[in-house]
Simulated scan of single mutants.
Amino acid sequence: MAGSFHAEKIGFTINQLDKTMIAWQFDSLKTTIETIYAFAVTDETALVSRCQHCNNVFISNNPRAKYCSTSCRNCANVQRSRERKAKKEEE
């Protein structure tokens, strides 16, 4: 993706009510996704990881996170439990 980001129009306005906020205005969904991805990849606090169960990429604030969702974590736990049970029955 490096070098392929060419946004025609990214505008923004600054709203200052009780809290200062930036309102982004993108020209397309593709530009929106690329911008969000760029912020996520360059953010020092967010970590881009790969799920150990489904192998999908996900963003986490916890460096110890291994799974992209609770569902993947549960599936991995069930799989490990079944493997332990099968190994125990072989012995």
Rank of each mutant, 00 (worst) to 15 (best):
H53W: 09
S69W: 09
S4T: 10
K66Y: 04
A46K: 15
K9Y: 12
F5M: 04
R84V: 14
E44W: 07
S49D: 12
R64H: 12
R82H: 09
E91C: 15
Q16R: 08
N15K: 09
A46G: 10
I33P: 01
S71N: 09
C54I: 05
Y37W: 00
G3L: 11
Q52S: 03
A76W: 07
I59H: 03
A65F: 04
A76S: 14
I14Q: 14
E34K: 00
M1C: 02
L17C: 06
N56M: 03
K30S: 01
Q25P: 05
N77K: 04
R64Y: 08
R73F: 05
K87P: 02
N61Q: 15
T31M: 00
M1F: 00
E34H: 01
I36M: 00
D18C: 04
T32H: 02
L29F: 02
K88N: 13
L47Y: 15
K9I: 07
Y37A: 02
C72P: 06
G3K: 14
F39G: 06
T42H: 05
Q16K: 10
A2V: 09
Q16T: 08
E91R: 15
S49A: 09
I22K: 09
A65Y: 07
A46T: 13
I22W: 01
D27E: 03
I22A: 03
I10V: 07
A76Q: 10
T13R: 08
T32Q: 03
Q16F: 07
E90N: 12
Q16G: 06
